[in-house]
Design a protein around this nucleic acid. Structure first.
Length: 422
RNA sequence: GUGGGCGUAGCUCAGGUGGUAGAGCCCUGGAUUGUGGAUCCAGUUGUCACGGGUUCAAAUCCCGUCGUCCACCCCA
């Protein structure tokens, strides 16, 4: 084979594709139940949007973007995440003028140039939701509630939410100062990497897996939040408590995108290996302004589809399973293709899903394939039938069969299925 | 970007210390001339990832490349 798929991408088909659809369907029903409507934004945007929104110094922007120039020399980038696009679309379409809270969900491919690994791909898929236009911590709670429910509707046992507040432009810079001062005392104990990034973004040290000992001794941002952030955070916890939503406070939790303010959360799963985050999200009250809009507070989350599918529990209540095809029309002999297709069309009009087998293989193979496709009925069309303008209909369950005129096949199948109480 | 394991049939994998490739599943045909899920019989399937080197001889040893998996890192 001359061509292979680009590194870190996947071909989706067969059972996996079916399960994907099933999961997507459940999630869509769920979020629509919360009043969220779908938004689809382009898979590529002007590069500057991501630089401004996600942050120049983040790993995503500095080394993971698929950036290219179009024929007019404009710099475009395949979206590494979707929140920036949703905010851009929100502002560009003047949706801020509608007032109230705008609630959107999205699903689709994202692109990051990373070394592929368990649960990490260069093209991966996210489903997420954004609630734009409110600073009420109750909306944060709604978002956390939804992101947890995604897993419960897919049959997951209750998962752990790690929760933190990352402050805002008022308190975070002050905390950074405190942190940097504190870090100075532990210079030799930090790993090489952390010593370097300590200058650029000291908060990221909390992400490091090696510097565990030092992390415990550092000050926590939650002890240094400004009045507004502190109140928001404690109010959120009250609401979550009241709703019975369980969470674990994690003062070490930080987010890798610069736009986050106040609430930050992550849902993790132990079965994923190193890439253990199933979903993550938080508040981004400054993003609208970064994108050239006014002050518009917002919260959202995003979940990785591949990671969800890879950890889907055995108990996943899969949809009906078999029976995807109602009827298989089996042509016998080498004439009559047209009649077979025409009959299939008629049956489809009556609402049945129909597969045709016009291959020259053996009867045994054709019936076997029909059975595997889950067909409840096989319709034989051979020289005898064609001559009499009839077809033999076989009930695959009972094995009984009858010769019927073309017009009678649809009603017959319906009757047979009713008898079975379907 | 760094490190390690692995690349043999469509799939899962055998192929001690070098001698030109195998099994199961799948697929196809038959036993059953136009009737499935079982059984039995027969058959097809390969640039042994790619390129180079060592050798009379390489799937096997060496080097490189690519892919894949895992970890670092990062994050969904």
């Amino acid at each position: 084979m001359k061509f292979s798929r680009p590194r870190g991408t996947n071909d989706l088909f067969g059972e996996r594709m079916e399960r994907w659809h099933d999961v997507e369907g459940r999630i869509v029903r769920l979020v629509r139940g919360y009043g969220y409507s779908e938004i689809r934004t382009p898979v590529f945007e002007m590069t500057d949007l991501f630089i401004r929104a996600v942050g120049k110094a983040t790993d995503i922007v500095s080394k993971e973007m698929y950036t290219f120039s179009d024929k007019k020399g404009r710099s475009l980038t395949l979206r590494p995440e979707n929140t920036a696009s949703v905010m851009r679309a929100f502002l560009e379409n003047g949706l801020h003028r509608k007032g109230g809270i705008s609630r959107f969900y999205y699903m689709g491919p994202m692109f990051r140039y990373d070394r592929p690994q368990a649960g990490r791909y260069r093209q991966f898929h996210q489903v997420g939701a954004e609630a734009i236009g409110s600073s009420n911590p109750a909306v944060d709670a709604e978002i956390i509630d939804i992101s947890l429910s995604i897993y419960s509707v897919c049959g997951f046992p209750p998962l752990d939410v790690r929760l933190n507040s990352v402050g805002c432009p008022v308190c975070r810079p002050a905390f950074k100062e405190i942190l940097i001062r504190s870090l100075a005392g532990y210079g030799d104990e930090l790993c090489q990497n952390c010593r370097e990034r300590g200058m650029v973004n000291p908060l990221r040290i909390f992400d490091c897996k090696k510097c565990g000992e030092v992390k415990k001794k550092l000050p926590f941002i939650t002890d240094h939040l400004c009045r507004e952030c502190g109140e928001h955070f404690s109010r959120l916890q009250e609401i979550l408590d009241g709703l019975g939503i369980r969470y674990t406070l994690d003062p070490l939790l930080v987010r890798g995108l610069d736009y986050y303010t106040k609430t930050a959360f992550e849902i993790i799963h132990p079965g994923l290996g190193a890439q253990n985050a199933l979903s993550g999200g938080g508040r981004y009250d400054g993003l609208a302004e970064d994108c050239g809009g006014g002050h518009i507070p917002a919260v959202g989350f995003s979940a990785g589809m591949e990671r969800l599918l890879e950890t889907l529990p055995e108990s996943f209540p899969g949809e009906t399973g078999d029976g995807r095809v109602d009827v298989c029309i089996i042509l016998i002999g080498d004439s009559g293709s047209m009649q077979a297709l025409s009959l299939a069309g008629r049956l489809r009009e009556s609402g049945l899903s129909v597969l045709t087998d016009l291959s020259g293989r053996s009867m045994k193979k054709k019936l076997g394939a029909a059975s595997e496709a889950g067909a409840g009925f096989a319709v034989f069309l051979g020289p005898d039938e064609l001559e009499r303008e009839k077809a033999t209909v076989k009930n695959m369950m009972t094995g009984s069969q009858e010769v019927l005129a073309f017009d009678g096949i649809g009603p017959f199948i319906e009757r047979e299925r009713d008898n079975r109480g379907e």
